[in-house]
Structure formats: C-alpha cells, structure tokens
Design a protein around this nucleic acid. Structure first.
Lengths: 218, 218
DNA sequence: CAAAACATTGCCCATAGGGGTAATATCATG
DNA sequence: CATGATATTACCCCTATGGGCAATGTTTTG
C-alpha cells in the first residue's frame, strides 16, 4: 500500500525539492500540496493523506496551528514537522500540536523517506537534536512553575520594553501591583532582571517574537 | 552563452528544488553546489560561476560573509541572496556584502530564472519587499548614528541580560564607564531603557539572536 | 601637525527596579 | 464550607539605572 503524502510549505522551491525526494520511492505517493496553513487543513480534509509534511513558518496559519487542526479532525493523518529552524519553542509546540515527527530541512532523501514510512506506521521519528529539546522541556517543566494569566499579561508588556509605570497604566492598576507581578515572574523564570526575563521568555517561546512590531519609539 | 550557476544552501531539499528549477531553462547551467559558506567560497574560486544563489543562513560561514568573500575575490561573479526570511538586517547585510539580488525562497521558477539572467547581466533584481527595507535603511541611516566598536560590544552583553556591574567585570573597566556606554547606546537607538535597547537591537539585527545559548542561569 | 572621534574615569542626582513582608478580596476547587 | 490560588494594595529599603557635566589620554583622520 502506498503512503499518501501531502506537502505543506510556502516555498515553491522546497515543494519542488520534496517532490523529487518523494518521487524516488515507489512506496510513497505525493497526493497534494499546500502553500499555507489554511490550505493545508482544507487539503488534508479533502485528500485524507496518511502523512503531512508540514512547514512551521507559513503565512495565513502557521504550521503548528495547522497541525493541531488536522490532528484533531483527522486522527488517522500523521504530521511530520519539516522546518529549517531547530528551535525549542517550535519543537515543543509541534509535538504538543500532535506532530509525530520533527525533521530539519537539511535531512537527506533516504532519512526523510524512512521518517515518512515510520510516521505512516504511527511510529515517532524525531531528529536527535529535536529530541534533546524535548528532554530539556520535560526536565524543566516541573521546575518551571507556570505563570498566572496576569503574570503572562505583564510578561508580554515587559517584552515590549514597557516600564512598570507604563504597564500599570495599561492594566489600570497601581505601579506597586505591577512590581509584585514582575517580582513573581522573575522568581518563576529564575532570572534577576526584567531584561533577562524578556530574553528568557523569548527563548522559551512564552512571548511572540514580533519582529517589526516595534517599540514605543524604535 | 549559458549562464553558469553555483548553488549554496545547506538544505539538500532546497538544492534539489533549485536543481529542478534551473533544469527547466537551457540558458542556465548548474555547475556546482555547496552546503555552507566556506564551501561556497572555495567552489566559487574553482568554478568561477557567473551567478551564485546564496542562502544566508548556513553553518561554518554564513551567506553574507561568503558573499563578501566571493565578491571581493571574484568581481565577475554575481551573487543573489536566496533566503526564506525577509529581514531588514539580512537584506541590508547582503546588499552591503555585494549581493546584486535578494529573493525569497517562495519565488516561482520563472521569476527566479529571470533574476538569474538579470544578475548575469549585472542588473539588479531585488524583490519589491526587500527593496522596501533598503528604502527604510537609506532613509534612517542618517538618523541612526552608528555605534562605536566598544558600544557594540556593550550592546552584545546587554543582549545577554548582563547588568552594568557584570559588563564592567567582563570588559575589565569600571562600572561608570559601562554606564556611559549604555547611556550612549540608549541615545543612539532612541530608547529609554536597556530592555528596549535589547529589543531594538534584536529587531535591527545589531545583535545575534542566539537562540539556545541561554542566560547566566536560564 | 591639528582636529575629531573615541574610550575611559569621575561625580552628582533623581528615578526605576527589585527583595521582603503582609493584608484583603475574589474565585475555583476539594 | 474551607482551603488554596490569584489579584490587588501597601509599606520599607537598598541597589541598579540613566541623565547631565567634565576631564584626560589615545587613536584616527583630515
């Protein structure tokens, strides 16, 4: 039985490369392509592929959201995250969204085909580098106390370079309150300053990296 | 006369895709491939291609450095930056390094081939989105005073969440000196706090984003 | 050589930031 | 209902941070 594969990647060059890679193996058949997350979900719905090769960075809807949507709707369809960045937040996010595999785009054809076959059989096939992040995540998830809703809100504002006073104004509370939240955030993240908190948060993917959004007056 | 093209990209999938794209046109011939910057430079030296399609994010030596090296050594060889990220710092860096083109990886085959032919003829072919960054750069380059070497050094440490005291220790100077540097950095970047400076610097690409390197005790 | 830019140090001062402690109201959950 | 988590406010205290001003030696540049 051939394994039916759907490709979701916004780069036509990558899709072309994958097409060639997949063409080398008779057990695998490319049944469709998508150029963004929304398209990936609707294509998956129509085609019901066995495996989706999902890029994570895509317009409209990112690959993690698309993965979550597909996995919840089509539990038979397995998703392999195929991305160029090896990033903690991306790995954790993809796995939490239901991806069974996480491969980098520098993967060679044989290894990719092996991963597709493994995924079709429901077997986890994850790059060793990516699994290192999983180990770290699991190891630190107990240590790292989760932030409360309010603290998360404050952290987002911290990550925009706001001062305590400004945050207080934004949240319609007194500055002292903000200072308490910041204090708790620092403690939970295990850092000593708001700058470190922001860096840590970005590293852990706790805040959107928001390139281009800008500061108050950058 | 066929245009001799060298591909430099660390992703085999991308190389495969480009190989297909280039194969569609008889005026273009793929003469070599490289998987990192160092390899790109040495291959360019041997093969003396007309055009190099250069990925920017590569191990060993990044595409910008490779572009600069190739352009200084082989002025006949034109470089087209071909990357998946549309980022101000990347565009500016590539252009400053001597790239004649900047294309995104979601470029379609016809457009890519057109760009290669233009580059071989010494004509600038840059994506309109990328040129927007150039416009902004030129417009703001007069406003934004460049950081001195020392200030850049301090900024790097700021971006690691270091305090003034720690930076002073690292640089073997007195804390007061660091404070002056920080002061100047804030003024030049037009921000009010070190946290904003870090965010601004990351946004402008003034500091390596260094995901995964970690803080003192993240 | 002279001028400009730069790195460095020093000092004063006001504010922002962060640690500790504690009390109160609310809300969810056992 | 009672307990615990959360949000909020309010202190105190100390350090970190950042702005302004000035001076000196060094390097770069015109």
């Amino acid at each position: 039985m051939v394994i039916r594969v759907l490709i979701a990647d916004d780069h036509s060059i990558v899709r072309e490369g994958l097409r060639m890679f997949l063409g080398r193996d008779s057990e695998v058949a490319l049944v469709g392509e998508a150029a963004n997350g929304v398209e990936a979900v609707s294509r998956a719905r129509e085609l019901r592929p066995d495996v989706v090769l999902m890029d994570l960075l895509m317009p409209e809807m990112d690959g993690i959201a698309a993965t979550a949507a597909i996995r919840s709707e089509l539990p038979e369809t397995e998703v392999i995250a195929l991305t160029s960045v090896l990033e903690s937040a991306a790995v954790i996010g993809a796995v939490k969204a239901g991806a069974i595999g996480y491969l980098l785009k520098d993967t060679q054809a044989p290894e990719l085909l092996k991963a597709i076959k493994a995924a079709a059989a429901g077997q986890v096939q994850i790059s060793s580098q990516a699994s290192a992040y999983l180990v770290r995540e699991v190891r630190t998830s107990e240590i790292r106390e989760p932030l409360t809703e309010r603290e998360t809100e404050v952290l987002h504002l911290l990550a925009q370079g706001r001062s305590n006073k400004e945050i207080a104004r934004d949240l319609h509370v007194v500055e002292d309150t903000v200072k308490v939240h910041v204090k708790h955030i620092l403690a939970k993240l295990g850092v000593q300053s708001r700058t470190q908190a922001v860096l840590c948060a970005m590293r852990l993917g706790l805040v959107p990296t928001e390139r281009g959004k800008g500061l108050r007056n950058g």
